[in-house]
Amino acid sequence: MALIDVEDLEKSFGNVKALDGVNLEVEKGEIVGVLGPNGAGKSSLMKILTGQIDYQEGEARVFGRDPSVEPIEIKKRVGALPEREDPPSFLTGDEYLEFISDVREESIDRDEWVEKLKLEGKMDKVTHDLSKGERQKLMITQAFFHDPELVFVDEPLVNLDPVIQENVKDLFKDTRDNGGTVFLCTHVISLAEELCDRVFFLKEGEHVEEVENVENLRKRFIKSQK
């Protein structure tokens, strides 16, 4: 059974069709990219699969479950890094880690994550006073700390410096190498090319093409969008 199974998925916001007949399958132990320009429907797809929003037509299954019917069960098993979300403003970094650890009822190796993402000296500040990049590091931590089988990440490297970007890429690879799966939504072609085992091109909400060999991705992606 595929980890993620999507068939003829449709989603509209008012008169705007965000997804129009998307099909894809994702197996265990791979980094799968969804590549598309702005407004292609990447974030909507991720929100549907993580049970954040409902869909109108077609089918979506994650771990064999429908995310619109069992969103909490799915959220418990996955990690999610939304594109536009910050940790709560009035908690310190340390308190935020305690908070997510309490919500998920999973212990967290605080020191390991602080070292991995170079957050030393920042954890006693309220997140409101941290830089965007530092807040993004905390969001990355909450998505991965509980070793989920499947992690959804949406534009994960935004605001991160080059050194941390490399650490985060390594984190994705480690997750895959340990049998986990990363579902990466991005419009950064070089990132998909570097990390992904397979890529799906999205164009205006439609699944255009599945690419198994990610070499020369830029040329093929641009061609797919014409």
């Binding site: 929100k47 993580t50 954040q52 969103p71 909490i72 959220k75 418990k76 999610a80 890094l81 939304p82 979300e85 709560p88 403003s89 009035f90 997510i100 919500v103 998920r104 909450q142 998505a143």
Partner: peptide, 14 residues
């Protein structure tokens, strides 16, 4: 005043 339901969308909270 400082959050909304959407704030917790990515967490397993109903």
């Amino acid at each position: 005043r400082f959050d909304s339901l959407e704030t917790y969308n990515y967490l397993p909270l109903d």
